[in-house]
């Protein structure tokens, strides 16, 4: 059995060890466990984030396999459960909690209050706008990292990260919508998820005064 100490030693030692201690103390919530959220969770678990809170109401469907972090053994299983299993395989020492629930304007603040960072990883534009408006108005200390625009097969360099307010970062091309003739493919979705995970890590370290 791999120990917690083994896992810690396995992290890239070219970074200062104190950075990993900071990441290990960090808590991040992820809203939506699809193409963005499932990959963000995996990247944060690999990076040594200590505590992840996973929120989704859905089960794994065969149509998810083209871009999400699930495989055939997860079909029909709740995404919260399937992703928890997957993350434990990658890093058994991440503290994972989850809510198998649909997020609404009425419950959003309650579900995410107390999490300093929330990744918005929904699929529908209306739900993205709803969650961000609710959390920014009701959770005064929460920073949100949102995925906005990663459909299609356009230039991957069109996907960027920008600060869109004191407590909001937007990752994506901010323009490519899903629709007739424009679907979702693993590469651009993963690029956007990578932007979000990277921004989360930057926020955590920069808050501790580390200049990156």
């Amino acid at each position: 059995m791999i120990t917690k100490e083994d896992m810690k030693k396995s992290l890239d030692g070219r970074f200062p060890i104190e950075w990993y201690d900071i990441l290990n103390r960090a808590e991040v919530a992820i809203a939506g466990l699809g193409g963005l959220g499932s990959h963000i969770a995996v990247m944060l678990a690999r990076s040594g984030i200590g505590r992840l809170h996973l929120v989704d109401f859905d089960v794994v469907d065969i149509s998810n396999l083209n871009r999400q972090e699930y495989d055939v053994r997860h079909l029909g299983i709740k995404k919260t459960e399937a992703l928890t299993d997957r993350l434990k395989e990658i890093n058994p020492y991440v503290d994972i909690t989850s809510d198998d629930i649909r997020i609404t304007p009425a419950n959003a603040a309650y579900i995410f209050s107390g999490y300093p960072i929330v990744c918005e990883a929904f699929d529908k534009a209306e739900e993205k706008a709803m969650l961000i408006s609710a959390l920014l108005s009701e959770c005064r200390d929460t920073v949100i990292v949102s995925g906005n625009g990663m459909a299609g097969l356009g230039d991957a360099n069109g996907i960027k990260t920008r600060m869109a307010g004191r407590r909001l970062y937007i990752c994506g091309d901010e323009s490519t919508d899903i629709g007739e003739g424009v679907g979702l493919m693993a590469p651009r979705v993963s690029v956007c998820a990578g932007h979000q995970a990277n921004q989360v890590i930057r926020i955590i370290l920069e808050k501790e005064g580390i200049v990156l």
Binding site: G32, G34, G35, L36, G37, A121, F122, D123, K124, A125, E126, K128, A129, I132, S146, G147, N148, G149, M150, A151, A164, G165, L168, I170, G172, E174, S175, T176, D177, I178, G179, L184, V189
Partner: peptide
């Protein structure tokens, strides 16, 4: 005012 316009996909 700052307006962030969202598109679908995730």
């Amino acid at each position: 005012i700052e307006i962030v316009h969202f598109v679908g996909g995730g």
